[in-house]
Simulated scan of single mutants.
Amino acid sequence: MVTPVMARGFVSVVSDSGETTEYDDVQVTHTGNRLVLSGTRESGMTETLTIEKDQCVQDGKVQFCSGGTVSLEHYRVTEVIQYRNLAVYTNTSNTPVQVPGTLVTLGPNTFMLEIKTLKGTYISAFGEFDR
């Protein structure tokens, strides 16, 4: 059994109309194949985005996942999110690592997430795991 690792992060959601919603100080839980991000809107409503990672490959110290199930929970209602593209990069090592084929460097114990939904919404997130 894998013990969850707690972290903090940032999430940005851009709708197809261009409206942007940002969540600072998002609580992140990361286990082997699950990434959970919970943030609170100004209205006080908490929303939780869960990614059940699949289609993962390990390239050095970076894990890259391009598939899985994405769901959004708000007001205790959970909706599965259909997506066109999903990319989850995770560095669970204690050293910085460049994401292969990019100019992006993930610091120690960090993640980066990008999702493009079928409805045209773009979700990006990043954060650092507690050590």
Rank of each mutant, 00 (worst) to 15 (best):
M1Y: 00
M1E: 11
M1G: 13
V2K: 13
T3G: 04
T3F: 07
T3A: 15
V5Y: 01
A7E: 03
A7R: 02
A7C: 09
G9T: 02
G9W: 06
F10V: 07
F10T: 03
V11R: 06
S12P: 10
V13S: 12
V14S: 09
V14A: 12
S15I: 00
D16Q: 03
G18K: 13
G18E: 10
G18I: 04
E19Q: 11
T20W: 01
T21D: 03
Y23C: 01
V26D: 06
Q27H: 01
Q27G: 06
T29A: 08
H30A: 14
T31M: 11
G32E: 15
N33G: 07
N33D: 14
R34F: 02
R34G: 04
L35G: 01
L35T: 09
V36M: 15
V36W: 06
L37W: 01
S38V: 02
S38L: 07
G39V: 08
T40M: 07
E42M: 09
E42L: 14
G44H: 01
M45R: 09
T48H: 01
T50R: 10
I51F: 08
E52F: 09
E52W: 06
K53S: 13
D54T: 09
Q55E: 15
C56V: 05
C56F: 05
C56Y: 06
Q58C: 00
Q58I: 06
D59N: 07
G60W: 00
K61L: 10
K61D: 08
Q63H: 02
Q63E: 15
Q63W: 00
F64V: 15
F64E: 15
F64A: 15
C65L: 05
S66Y: 13
G67R: 11
G67W: 13
G68W: 13
V70Q: 08
S71F: 07
S71I: 06
E73P: 12
E73T: 15
H74P: 00
H74E: 15
Y75V: 11
Y75A: 15
Y75R: 13
R76D: 10
T78F: 06
Y83H: 03
Y83D: 03
N85C: 00
N85L: 06
L86R: 06
L86T: 03
L86G: 03
Y89G: 11
Y89F: 12
T90A: 05
S93Q: 04
S93L: 07
T95D: 07
P96Q: 09
P96L: 03
V97H: 07
Q98T: 12
V99T: 05
G101E: 10
L103V: 07
L106P: 10
G107N: 10
P108Q: 10
N109H: 14
N109A: 06
M112Q: 12
L113I: 04
I115D: 04
K116W: 04
T117E: 11
L118M: 13
K119N: 12
K119D: 15
K119F: 08
T121F: 13
T121G: 04
T121R: 11
Y122T: 13
I123W: 08
I123P: 05
A125C: 03
F126R: 08
G127P: 06
E128W: 01
F129S: 11
D130A: 12
